[in-house]
Design a binder for these strands. Structure first.
Length: 154
DNA sequence: GCCAACGTTGGC
DNA sequence: GCCAACGTTGGC
């Protein structure tokens, strides 16, 4: 079982939206980065857990825990001409982009802020805090996962 | 809103 | 295949 971190701008889709979604479940579509695509397509498995991370917001940080509910499958938004994530170069017969389904497990009792995460020596090597990292989907180690959750009580 | 850092594109 | 220009991400 693997752990992941998924970034989303709360003004576009955040914890609030996930809590209101049917079954508190969503299609995590629109990822347009090849490294992230490879993980979604090849590595994500049902039962994996993922942090929901709020990016580009007044308060950035880890907001919730989600569970992976599907294997990776072709991202339908790539084929919709009126979708903001439309990619005319993606061939439905050989899709470029993949997505997964995620379900809310629970919100964290408080937002674990990026600044706190950067200050935690246990999380110094977390991909999230690597300078210039622009991945919107990234793996989290079991140790990092536990260290973030330990901060929830602080 | 600024801007640094990065991935992608496209000319050659 | 190189690499400069461009667009995007995302913290601040």
């Amino acid at each position: 079982m693997a752990y992941w971190l998924m970034k989303s701008e709360p003004s576009v889709f955040g914890l609030h939206d996930l809590e209101r979604a049917p079954d508190r479940r969503t299609h995590w579509d629109g990822v347009r980065n090849y490294q992230a695509r490879n993980w979604l397509r090849d590595v994500f498995r049902p039962g994996d857990l993922a942090f929901l991370y709020h990016s580009n917001a007044a308060a950035t940080g880890v907001a919730a825990i989600m569970e992976v509910m599907s294997e990776g499958y072709p991202d339908p938004s790539a084929f919709l001409s009126d979708d903001p994530h439309h990619d005319p170069k993606s061939d439905p017969a050989n899709p470029t982009w993949y997505c997964v389904d995620l379900q809310l497990v629970r919100p964290l009792t408080r937002l674990i802020g990026l600044a706190e995460i950067k200050q935690n020596p246990q999380l110094a090597s977390m991909l999230l805090v690597r300078p210039g990292n622009r991945l919107s989907v990234m793996p989290v180690t079991a140790e990092e996962w536990a260290a973030v959750l330990a901060m929830e009580q602080a």
